[in-house]
Nucleic acid binder design. Structure first.
Lengths: 160, 160
DNA sequence: TTGAAACCCTGGAGCCACTCCAAGGTCAAT
DNA sequence: ATTGACCTTGGAGTGGCTCCAGGGTTTCAA
């Protein structure tokens, strides 16, 4: 099948398919006489796998490791374990820091009591004041230090 | 003060300070005879504000809006409200999707029962199988569709 | 037969919020 | 005179795509 059909069946954009090929996650398919890529269902399977892992918020590097395991079933299993465990820890750390963040924002939102202008706005006053506070979010270690990875966003689903 | 001292007191890198200037968040300071930037405490205050908002995971665009409000205290306050509310909703949506993700990963981790090789690894089998499943994470709308923004990571705190 | 629409190709730029580097200038202390 | 710590600029890199320009190909209908 051509790239358009493959992309549609894998529910992603053709650009993304080509990107995965360039990134080394999808093996380059044979070409037709006109230069068009010609995919098989094996490619579709691989793409489905990648998509599933991306939905689990794994990085392309991690997925690449997993794909190696898929093609070489004789290696030890514990690397896979560790990969998933690491992923889980990342997610849990991120949830914890987002919860701190949420409570900060809730406090902030309650500062505004129907004032009319920015000069009277409690949110803004709070933000300006808090920036000096040694005990505030940006000085405490509750955010940032515990989650210093470049955390990937989940894939979008709006490719129709 | 020079950029090094400013950066140290604002707890960020000199690169970041220059980046904020180029991005229009920090007004360009006067220069000394040798071309060095010469900052005042006003710049430090502004940087503290930016840093605090970044710790609340706001985008530079949002912070830019807030900074406009700070300098023009006569505008209406509800835009600030909406900004914080939007931020809060983003965070809550993200928490929800990460929770789904966490449970998926927990299921996945329990698939591995001390097998030795990747070929027998339950995690991998589950991943391969789940990729075909219409009801799995990557096909359901629970992740991705509800959080289709390019969500920024919180700033790192490892600049010492 | 002509033409339009729907595909395909490549390479390159853009997004965000930095981070790092190279190549050079400046300044104080030794 | 030289070392080392600072400063300057511009440009490239990160991840994971997404979009675009400028071209070629195929398929369908009028």
């Amino acid at each position: 099948m051509r790239i358009g059909e493959l992309a549609k069946r894998a529910e992603m954009k053709t650009d993304t398919v080509r990107y995965y090929e360039k990134a080394g996650l999808l093996p380059p398919p044979p070409r037709r006489h006109n230069g068009y890529r010609d995919y098989s269902t094996l490619h579709l399977e691989r793409l489905a796998f990648i998509r599933h892992c991306r939905a689990l918020d794994m990085s392309l590097a991690d997925i690449s490791h997993l794909l190696e395991f898929v093609t070489r079933p004789d290696v030890k299993c514990d690397a896979i374990d560790r990969l998933i465990d690491g992923q889980l820890m990342q997610v849990q750390t991120r949830i914890a820091s987002l919860r701190t963040l949420e409570s900060q924002l809730l406090v902030l939102r309650d500062q505004c009591h129907d004032q009319k202008t920015a000069g009277e706005c409690g949110i803004l006053q709070e933000l300006v004041a808090a920036a000096h506070d040694e005990g505030c979010v940006c000085h405490s270690a509750s955010i940032g230090e515990t989650d210093a990875t470049n955390y990937p966003s989940p894939p979008r689903d709006d490719q129709d």
